[in-house]
Each structure stands twice: as C-alpha cells, then as structure tokens.
C-alpha cells in the first residue's frame, strides 16, 4: 500500500543502497541459539571477499569471545542465506555465490548448545 503523503508521488531517499558504502556491502552474521551476542553482527566487506576470509578473519572479530567459538567443527555447521539452506563455497567470492548487499547469513552448530547449554 502506498504511503499517504501530502506531496504527490512521495518517495524517500534509499539511505542504505550499496553505493553509499564506499565499495563495501553489508553482510549480517548470526549464530543461532548463541545469545551471548544480543543480535546478529553487521560487517561491511568487499563483495569480492571469499567466504573463507569472511569466516576465518572477519567473523572472528565478533564471535571469538564466545567460549564455544574455537570448538566449532565447520564441517558440521549448517548455514541459511536469507532464510534458505545454503552451502558456502569457501574460495568463491561472496557476490558470486549469491551473498549480496544486506544478506543475512545464519549458522547453526547443533553440537554446541551455548554456555550452560542454555542457548547463550
């Protein structure tokens, strides 16, 4: 339903378009059932970054303080990209495997249930 505006054909400026991020795009990363981190993180990264660098260098910055981070077996972790099951290709650029601006990547580590097994 269109906005009810006094000005005809009102259309606000899209503040978060990818061109405003100086060559980067935003990727959100959330670790399901690990609420030591109150929310998913937002990272500005080049679209050409490989998934391996995203996982091993960028994500570390946010997730590393979690006591279970170093115990993740990435071969057993599962991923969702914008709600769809996703198989990351480690040495392919983000944008070439469909991870575009403001994509949400969630990962699940079913063997690790968070601090005190409480989803923390």
């Amino acid at each position: 339903m269109p906005v009810h505006a006094y000005t005809p054909d009102y259309n606000g400026e899209v503040r978060d378009r990818v061109g405003n991020f100086h060559g980067n795009q935003i990727v959100y990363l959330g670790w399901d059932h690990h609420l030591m981190f109150c929310a998913a993180f937002a990272f500005p990264v080049p679209p050409t970054l490989t998934f391996r660098l995203l996982r091993d260098e960028v994500m570390v910055e946010g997730f590393e303080p979690h006591p279970e981070w170093s115990r993740i077996d990435w071969d057993r972790a599962t991923w969702l990209l914008n709600g769809q099951v996703f198989e990351p290709q480690l040495d392919v650029a983000l944008i070439d495997q469909g991870i575009d601006h403001k994509s949400l990547l969630r990962f699940q580590t079913p063997d690790l249930k968070g601090f005190q097994d409480a989803g923390v």
Partner: peptide, 17 residues
C-alpha cells in the same frame, strides 16, 4: 509505507558509510 521507511537513518549503517 515503504517509501517513508527506506530513509531510515540506521546508526550502524551510517557509521559504515
């Protein structure tokens, strides 16, 4: 009213910009 909320000044994105 998407035409209105596309302008949302989100502090995290503004920092990144």
């Amino acid at each position: 009213e998407p035409e209105k909320f596309v302008q949302s000044w989100l502090p995290v994105h503004q920092i990144f910009q």
